[in-house]
Write a protein that binds this DNA or RNA. Structure first.
Length: 778
DNA sequence: GCTAGGTTAATTTTT
DNA sequence: TTAACCTAGC
């Protein structure tokens, strides 16, 4: 089922469009609010423009002003502007802000939306060129996985060794690169045990039969259509006289091709982005797109937005120095008119628990107002972590001290199990031939229909060449389904028939939804469930039904699902925000905490291992994003010891910490805390002595020594400890398992027969050669 | 078909 | 450590 907002597309077409000519040539007040650079970017309407907008430089303001300017001057009509974003949230915000600038609602901007929503709308118009019907379904990850699982099983592949998730990832990457099955390069032939391309082709064929597409297809199919149908392409090239793209650094190859095709004629394309904030390489984003812009569009005007309206000078300076260590960047110098503020604060802790404890206390202190700073509202404070599992430590701590917090991210409303189940029922009421929905709910609640019954139904459907619901009907009638399941299945079929009939008869959709949840036994299922989540799930179902109120019918609602996706559970209580660095992009907070700055955690070892220097640069951009979220106060912290997958590990402060300029950093080093060998004042000998004093353990000292030995300017990507390569037969030592012999070694994954602990699979960096066992701290 | 207990593996996430 | 996934036994 589609998770995003296709709506505007449809409603806009029927609305009177806001005519550009209707606007008198009057002064443009929106221009007055712009600084010279912004104004330059806004007024350069013709030809390619790259707006390099640093963090906090008023990017959205400039972008929306540009749209307003296009409309105001009459250069374009609202439906002649193509404005693309990545998220529905960004699209919504842009629409609102343009409306505010123009002082009237922006109706008739049918082509302002996400890449996916706009492509979906285009693809519905030209579905037949892709072998689809205009009412195709858009599958989400779950549907996709279910489908792939079937194909993997059909291909006699062991799903345990070759999971559907992996295949989904591979196909996704291929689609991001705009490779149809025929165009996947031979170099990829070994993917998925050599069966990848074949399964990809099978998957695409299956999608076509189901009259369905996945997210990647929305873009890919449109690129394919544009490439092979000049008339269609020409039509849209003429229509979209002006193109605007937000977050250009996040575009993947397919999106890039799509844009380039559309802009090829008039070349009025304005891309806005920040190469320093490209943090989505792992999902196909190509920083190269933005770095290459001037080559792609010769004669492009490049405007740099460098005046920052968000952060204090120290915060900006720290962030700038950090990002300067990256090689692949266009380069910007952020500056601000703001006066001096707090330096970036740096603090080390003994372990992760202490870090969490300190953070909790510090937040409470900020709330009260300390050190001459005005009190902060909890709403003004955010904790940004590299990986979501890091949030737990803080949640635990905040729960014990009763500090209210909210977590951003995690499964969205519409992704939740109960919502997806309910939606599947609704989908079936609207279109009974939705097989994926049918499979989802056929045994939810339990109806005694297991794998065997499902296989029977599927077979019956295939034999008769009908959807699964019909197959089920056949199987139920001719007695192929027996026992407990038969009654359950018959009841389900009767229910689905009834609900579909009512839906067609135009019964009030809210009432219908309630009936469906009631009669299907779905609500009852959760009422009976005694697990702690059950009440919350029932609550969510109520909310779902409530969300229906805003729509005329179920179809409309199903198209609009995305609208409920970020419904903040509105409590007015102040709360600290916890989220990942990725989720924080585009946001800002007066006070930001950045915990867990330890090598291996951040920068993430995996990122460095898998992508080498490129991975490290992306991690550094993530660090840059983190620091630049802060308006007044930015606090970086790390712990010397941390439990990683249940095992205690000693940690080294992040190499990014070494890259922060000392003059902009304030090292908070309460007695007994480790300052990180960083700008702590005093001579090195004094520092060492002081530290040895408070922490006399040999392991501690060794760790200190190692911290000093590390190169200051970070060239090496790989930690020395991680370099050690083992082969079968090697004697090794593991902190927890003791001594053992390597039996198998593949990259950094080892199988070791430990003398005492038995055979275990371990990661190479958790062991050292037995001869070096003494080097292991603690 | 369901549940309890063992096994396994472990970023980032939008559409 | 933990959570998700799977298998064996009811």
């Amino acid at each position: 089922m589609s998770d995003f907002d296709e709506d505007d597309a449809f409603e806009a077409a029927s609305r009177p469009s806001l005519s550009a000519r209707a606007m008198p040539a009057r002064p443009a007040p929106y221009l007055d609010a712009l600084n010279p650079a912004q104004r330059e970017a806004v007024e350069a309407l013709e030809g390619p423009v790259l707006m390099l907008a640093g963090a906090g430089t008023g990017k959205t303001r400039a972008l929306t002003a540009r749209i307003a300017h296009l409309l105001h001057t009459g250069a374009a009509r609202p439906d002649g502007i193509l404005a693309v974003t990545f998220t529905n949230k960004a699209a919504r915000e842009m629409k609102e802000r343009v409306a505010a600038l123009l002082g009237q609602p922006v109706e008739g901007m049918p082509w302002l939306g996400t890449f996916h929503a706009i492509c979906a709308k285009l693809l519905r118009r030209h579905a037949e060129l892709a072998g689809l019907k205009p009412n195709f379904t858009i599958l989400d990850t779950d549907d996709q996985l279910r489908l792939l699982k079937q194909l993997i099983a059909a291909g006699n592949i062991d799903e345990k060794r070759w999971p559907a998730r992996l295949l989904a990832g591979i196909i996704d990457q291929w689609k991001n690169r705009a490779w149809t099955p025929e165009r996947v390069p031979v170099a990829e032939a070994q993917a998925f045990n050599g069966r990848g391309i074949e399964l990809y082709a099978a998957y695409q064929a299956r999608l076509r039969t189901l009259n369905a597409v996945d997210f990647g297809d929305l873009i890919l199919q449109m690129v394919t259509i544009f490439q092979s149908h000049d008339d269609v392409l020409g039509q849209y090239q003429r229509r979209f006289r002006y193109i605007l793209v937000d977050e250009y650094q996040d575009t993947n190859v397919a999106q890039y091709l799509w844009l380039r095709l559309l802009a090829a004629g008039h070349r009025n394309i304005c891309c806005v982005g920040d190469d320093d904030q490209s943090i989505y390489g792992w999902r196909g984003a190509e920083v190269g797109n933005i770095l290459r812009f001037e080559k792609d569009f010769p004669g492009a005007k490049v405007v740099r937005l460098e005046q920052n309206y968000r952060s204090t000078p120290h915060i900006l300076a720290a962030a700038s120095a950090l990002i300067a260590a990256n090689r692949d960047r266009l380069g910007k110098t952020l500056w601000t008119e703001e006066s001096e503020g707090e330096k970036v604060r740096l603090i080390g802790h003994w372990d992760g628990d202490e870090e969490a404890r300190w953070l909790g206390e510090e937040i409470e202190a900020l709330q009260r107002g300390t050190r001459g700073l005005d009190p902060f509202s909890l709403d003004d404070i955010a904790i940004l972590v590299r990986a979501s599992h890091q949030m737990r430590a803080f949640e635990d701590r905040f729960l014990t001290i009763g500090l209210p917090y909210r977590v951003i991210g995690g499964p969205r409303f519409y992704e939740r199990l109960e919502i997806r189940d309910a939606m599947a029922y609704f989908r079936l009421a609207v279109s009974p031939d939705d097989d994926l929905a049918f499979e989802r709910i056929v045994n939810t609640p339990r109806r005694g229909l297991g794998d065997k019954a499902l296989a029977t139904i599927r077979a019956a459907a295939r034999e008769a060449g009908v959807p699964m619901l019909e197959g089920a009907r056949i199987a139920a009638e001719n007695g192929r389904i027996k026992g407990r399941g038969a009654a359950g299945l018959r009841a389900l079929i009767a229910g689905l028939d009834r609900w579909h009939a009512r839906q067609r008869a135009g019964v009030d959709h809210i009432e219908l939804a309630e009936t469906i949840l009631e009669e299907s036994g779905y609500t009852e299922m959760w009422l009976q469930d005694k697990s702690p989540e059950a009440p919350g799930r029932l609550e969510n179902l109520k909310e779902l039904v409530k969300a229906l109120e805003g729509f005329e019918n179920l179809q409309g609602f199903l198209e609009h699902v995305s609208l409920i996706m970020d419904n903040e559970t509105g409590t007015d209580e102040e709360r600290v925000t916890l989220m990942t660095l990725h989720a924080a992009k585009g946001l800002e907070y007066p006070a930001v905490f950045l915990p867990g700055w330890e090598d291996g955690l951040f920068p993430s070892q995996r990122s460095m291992d898998e992508n080498g220097p490129r991975g490290l640069e992306e991690e550094r951009r993530l660090a840059y994003v983190g620091i630049t979220r802060a308006r007044q106060l930015c606090t970086i912290s790390f712990a010397a010891n941390r439990r990683v997958y249940g095992q205690w590990q000693s940690q080294l402060p992040s190499r990014f910490i070494d890259e922060l300029p000392e003059e902009h950093v304030d090292v908070l080093t309460p007695p007994g805390l480790y300052g990180g060998g960083y700008g702590a004042g005093g001579t090195r000998m004094e520092q060492e002595a002081a530290r040895a004093d408070s922490h006399a353990s040999p392991g501690w000292r060794r760790m200190q020594a190692r911290a000093y030995e590390r190169p200051r300017q970070t060239a090496p990507v790989i930690d020395l400890d991680a370099v050690e390569i083992f082969a079968p037969g090697d004697r090794v030592f593991h902190r927890k398992f003791g001594y053992g012999a390597v039996t198998q070694a593949e990259d950094d994954k080892l199988e070791v027969a430990f003398d005492k602990a038995g055979v275990k699979k371990v990661i190479a960096r958790f062991v050292v050669a037995a001869a070096r066992a003494d080097d292991v701290p603690f």
